[in-house]
């Protein structure tokens, strides 16, 4: 039963927000749709219902989103703006191997997207067999995987592990 809650809530919320209406008509259609889609899709999206319905994990996800959109983005932007505004273009571009520790696919994908969405770093490929991201780094502090991990991934992965792992 609890397995179906997260997808149902997601679908209902998207339906209501996109419709821009909370009339009885939309509440009924949204609820029916949420139940139907959740019954069909939950087995592909929810592996562990106790994690998916955890309020604590959801709170940590919201906290991560706030942290990411303010602090992490600000730091990354400050670096790249510094590069853009300086006259001698201090770039040291490289594609580096970044090993990830996380096992859950949501942690891995959220980490990869966090890296890509901050300016200066882009995940260009992923090797799930070797647990590696290949990351294009505009100013590579070092080429060895551990330096890259410490600088690019560690912060995101640690925080996201508390949400998804």
């Amino acid at each position: 039963m609890r397995r179906y809650v997260p997808v149902a809530v997601l679908v209902f919320a998207v339906y209501i927000v996109f419709s821009g209406s909370v009339s009885p008509y939309d509440l009924v259609i949204g609820a029916l749709l949420a139940v139907g889609v959740s019954l069909a899709a939950s087995r592909y999206l929810v592996r562990d219902p106790s994690k998916a319905c955890s309020i604590g994990r959801f709170a940590r996800l919201v906290w991560y989103a706030l942290y990411y959109l303010t602090v992490a983005e600000f730091r990354a932007h400050r670096k790249v703006i510094g590069i853009i505004l300086s006259r001698d273009m201090p770039v040291r571009p490289a594609i580096v191997r970044v090993p990830y520790r996380a096992r859950g696919e949501y942690t891995v994908v959220a980490s990869a997207n966090s890296i890509t969405n901050t300016p200066g770093t882009v995940v260009v490929d992923i090797d799930t067999d070797k647990s590696l991201f290949y990351v294009h780094w505009i100013y590579a502090e070092g080429l060895d995987p551990e330096t890259a991990y410490e600088n690019i991934l560690k912060d995101f992965e640690t925080r996201l592990s508390r949400v998804f792992e």
Binding site: L10, V14, Y15, F18, D26, L33, E105, V108
Partner: peptide
């Protein structure tokens, strides 16, 4: 495609269905 694209897409598909039904019902 890669794990990243697959996971993001499987989250987007239920949302896509919700938006399509909303367009039809309105």
């Amino acid at each position: 495609l890669s794990l990243i694209v697959r996971v993001v897409t499987k989250i987007l598909i239920p949302m896509n269905v919700a938006i399509a039904v909303s367009i039809a019902a309105h």
